[in-house]
Simulated scan of single mutants.
Amino acid sequence: MNMNTLKSTTTPVYAYSADCPELKLQFKELINELVESSLSADALAEALSGSIDDLATMLRSMPALEGRLIERGIAAVAKSNPDLEVITQNLRLPVLPAALQLVELNDPAKYRSLTFDADQGGRKTYTPDLIVLNRLTKVAHVVDAKRSINTYDRARIEELMKRMKAAGLVVSDFLYKEHKRLIAEEVRVVILTADNRKTDLNGGIWHISHLDHLVEIAGAGEAIGLLQRKFRSRIQANWELACETFSSKSGHQITTAVDVMTAAEETEPDDEDDQTCGGSSGIGTRREPQMIKLGFAQVPVRH
């Protein structure tokens, strides 16, 4: 996609926008699916009528649901750009011992032009939330989306980054063999976080507001922020209705508001898998090793 820049500003202007009816409809359906499946007013009222464990279990599920909302929202926005191939399924990448050692012991400049055979397998794996491949530039972004990384200490973030970079060394081969011979000549890794803490643009940790640049869609980050706010508003409305229902049945008035999004700890599955990662089950076509570039996502170029 061509990127133009207005003479009066340094902000990139993209050919596609997240402000479109189709995307708004998808977001509405996504909220309905996630909220009504387990956080409807009836479900919340039933939890209030049950034990404290029932209520605690439901409250703990909310951050995980919001994380899933963000992941799927990002994928939906990215698909609005027809130049992008957005992959969300069959993404278990092997973290090869040799690749991990290479990442741990060397500067990225030493290995950023290497690629590993995805068929080698191994006990450790990493599953990104999505891979976004620009078919025009042949740049693939390995994306890990987080509702918040505020609960992650530095060591945990560094460990995640190592696994992402090690897994990135097989992405080119993996996409070619497992996803219809897609070609990636450069692989970049990025953690997208919806909070405002610990961002590091040069180190591959971006706030969701930078999503516009990653997917080349104007208003992409703002759209995800709006999606979050609508999700929380929907839950709050259901919570208030559930409290009214509970109060009318039990005679006990609930006056304390529950800020479920900030009170509960984030619960996300570990992307590292100790199960043996088997060989490729794809087209079975061996491919000669090629030179690729591996690195962090790059910040927008200012003109």
Rank of each mutant, 00 (worst) to 15 (best):
M3H: 05
T5Q: 10
T10H: 07
T11K: 14
L23S: 14
F27E: 12
F27C: 14
F27D: 12
K28S: 14
K28G: 13
E36I: 06
L39R: 09
L44I: 15
A47C: 12
A64Q: 08
L65R: 10
I70Q: 10
I70N: 12
S80C: 13
N81C: 08
E85V: 12
L96Y: 08
L102C: 14
E104I: 11
L105A: 15
Y111Q: 07
D119W: 03
R123N: 13
R123A: 09
I131W: 04
V139W: 01
D144W: 01
T151K: 09
R156V: 02
I157Y: 01
E158V: 04
E158H: 06
M161Q: 13
A167E: 07
S172C: 11
L175H: 09
K180F: 06
R181I: 04
L211F: 14
H213K: 06
V215T: 15
I224R: 05
G225W: 02
Q228H: 08
R232F: 00
S233L: 06
R234K: 13
I235N: 00
A237I: 02
A237R: 12
W239N: 06
T245E: 03
F246Q: 03
S247W: 01
S250K: 09
S250Y: 03
I254V: 11
A263R: 15
E266D: 14
D271P: 07
E272K: 08
G279T: 12
S280A: 13
V299Y: 11
H303Y: 08
